[in-house]
Design a protein around this nucleic acid. Structure first.
Lengths: 414, 414
DNA sequence: TGACTTTATAAAGCCCCTTTCCTAACCCCT
DNA sequence: AGGGGTTAGGAAAGGGGCTTTATAAAGTCA
């Protein structure tokens, strides 16, 4: 709510680092042009990042008659970030370098009935330990661990207030994890993690207004408004998956009827398939991944059943995404997460058409609907990005120490 | 997109003036407490407003042992604001003093078939002329004229890009109006006007996140996010009325089927009534106002038909407002405009229940659903508020004159 | 080698906000 | 009536941010 000039600095720091990561190496000139900041500001921000060892100078660009431009690049080995994606059936952990390349992965299955907080925390701790050893990173280099857990979370206290899939209530997840993990921890939910991933590294980069639609087992929307994530008053904005799209429609696990999720989430798509073609061989009962994969293959071969199911699904999806277009008037709608990735362009093409049928022409004309370009698990990447943001955040608040008076003069004289 | 420290100043200026208008007279101390700003900042901002003659000092508060607090109040006669609400069948103009009291009104009917831009402009010009003479205001005191016109507008150029009700396309409304009106003109659409009215003077005051639902002949939602209006990338955010709530539902004037508007806009409510009780005497065919008024009276007497119709309407409204609650996670949802005002608390009570049935419990718990406290035409008030914002805006940009070197020392020495 | 060009840093200036200090204004008590 | 004590409000200083301007650095080209 209360804005201060510090927020501007933080936003600019983010923007510059984002740009460097996206286009590495790059020059200060390019950064200034891309961000709209003055050269001087860019220079000081780059200087900060150099001091933090997040970037390095990597030679010069040959010039045409003047002093050559110094090039800066992400210092990939300047630190490591860990992203944890806790989902209903698995815990997925990835360790990234500062260029956000995956250095190591680990996955643990969460079997039904083994979903007590302590058990899940155990999985996370094991997987985090595993990626650190795999990567051979010395512990001190890990800048932070971002954790994505479904449901409603309180970021400040690190509490998972409510996780519908496991019926968790007010689980102090960060406290539990900190018994095993010594790095700074950042907690949020997958919707926002995916949105942040798209904002930093994906299709929403540079957009002031974007909507990131997560299509997985559950569905939701991450909202980027004014260049930053919109969280709402109690950090639960974006619960698009539980909007009613069919009055008195299918029963949803949330208890309501006709939620978007029940038609376009992976189980919903399976149900669409079953309703349209009860004994199709595309259906793998009890296996969402296989069924979606079968549909994806079917789309490539123009299998009539697959086409019919995707079109049917796109109809609901189109109407629901049209809601987002009408309401937010975004520059871009990004389709992300594994169902979107699996069904790919064929789905997007159908969705574009369906949205155009339902949205108003004016906002529709201003909106692009695209597939996420992120190849890996976006929730992991986004969770790691929370850790990155956290590491950058703490730059601003220089410790108000007064005991060391010589600290402002850190650069070497001569 | 690009934030500067100036924006902070502007936002603070708005906030302080809002507070003064809301609670006039008030002291600097109270203002500081209410806004969270320091005393010094409040003092300088109040000083600016005093210089602008928008506020005046009005005596002192008796103190208990110290220097008495100086009281400042809106200088009601320090200027006048004009709000123009152009609707499908009428042009409504109100002239306000700076305390936003209505000093004069004028209304012109727009008959079907007389909706050419020139004709509408004529009505506006006549009505604006009328309120100025009625109020006996000398012209120089009018700080600006805000104009609300349905559909999509480009504020910067003052063009009505598309008005669905009259099939206007790219009408240069501000240019046309400036032939008749010499005051600064500000153009936007009723959704945003109503939202700004609620933000400044209504139920959304002080909320970082609020949704203002406009229920009239057309319906829509004004979005207040982060304490400011969300406009979207092409200034067409908030078109909630054309979200599909029933797939293949009623035909909407926008060409689609099943839009929210077709169930909860005034014509939609009439249709609900006709469907539920075809020959109820509540129905006044062809007269929305009379029918809604009859329903309102029916609600007071617990007329079973009226109750049934309102409950039926609230069902659609509840599901649609639940979308907003789930997506935005706002502090407050404000029901505004004439249908909401007419049906009043009975409607709100039904809506609260219906929303609670459809929204997720967590965001729902954080959200209050209230009726707009604004007694007059909120679009007029909001339009006038645009003019007020415009007048305040121009304070910041001090003319970059260099010819008068002594300009920084404006205050009298002594 | 000198002139010109381009980059990067340093300095100065402006805009914000806050904190601190000091004067103004009032009450109350002696 | 005249000092304390207390509170309000303004002025100045300070800190953070961004930009413009000046200066130093590092090339190319004649």
């Amino acid at each position: 709510m209360k804005r201060t000039s510090r927020d501007i600095r933080t936003a600019n720091r983010y923007e510059v680092l984002r740009q460097i990561i996206a286009e590495s190496p790059t020059s200060r000139q390019e950064l200034a042009a891309a961000t709209g900041l003055s050269l001087a500001t860019v220079a000081t921000l780059v200087g900060e990042l150099l001091d933090l060892r997040m970037t390095t100078e990597v030679g010069f660009e040959e010039s045409a008659g003047g002093r050559p431009r110094g090039l800066v690049a992400v210092n990939a080995s300047g630190g490591a970030l860990i992203g944890v994606d806790i989902a209903e059936t698995y815990v997925h952990v990835e360790l990234f370098d500062l260029a956000l390349n995956v250095l190591a992965r680990a996955e643990e299955d969460v079997r039904p009935g083994e979903s007590l907080p302590e058990q899940v925390v155990g999985h996370v701790a094991a997987a985090v330990g595993s990626v650190v050893t795999q990567a051979g990173i010395e512990g001190a280099r890990v800048l932070g661990v971002g954790v994505s857990v479904p449901g409603q979370v309180d970021r400040a206290t690190g509490i998972s207030e409510y996780a519908p899939n496991w019926d968790w209530h007010d689980v102090p997840l960060v406290d539990l994890l900190s018994e095993y993990i010594a790095y700074p921890l950042y907690l949020d939910n997958p919707l926002r993690a995916v949105a942040v991933a798209e904002l930093w590294f994906g299709a929403a980069r540079g957009s002031g207004n974007a909507v990131v639609v997560t299509l997985g087992t559950g569905v939701g929307a991450g909202l980027v408004l004014g260049g930053a994530l919109h969280r709402g008053v109690s950090n639960s904005a974006g619960e698009w998956g539980h909007n009613t799209i069919v009055l008195d429609g299918r029963l949803c696990r949330c208890g309501n009827h006709g939620c978007v999720e029940t038609y376009v989430g992976a189980p919903g798509i399976m149900l669409n398939l079953r309703e349209l073609s009860p004994d199709s061989e595309l259906l793998h009962p009890g296996d969402q991944t296989a069924t979606i994969a079968a549909l994806a293959r079917g789309m490539l071969t123009q299998d009539p059943v697959a086409v019919k199911v995707v079109r049917h699904t796109a109809r609901y999806l189109g109407a629901s995404i049209a809601h987002l277009v009408n309401l937010f008037n975004p520059e871009v709608v990004v389709l992300s997460s594994w169902v979107a990735a699996a069904l790919g362009e064929p789905l997007v093409a159908e969705v574009r058409e369906a949205v155009a049928r339902h949205a108003l022409p004016r906002p529709m004309a201003a909106t692009e609907i695209v597939l996420s370009p992120i190849p890996t698990d976006p929730a992991c990447l986004g969770a790691a990005t929370f850790a990155l943001e956290g590491a950058l955040q703490s730059v601003g608040q220089r410790s108000a120490k007064r005991t060391t008076p010589a600290r402002t003069k850190t650069h070497n004289p001569r």
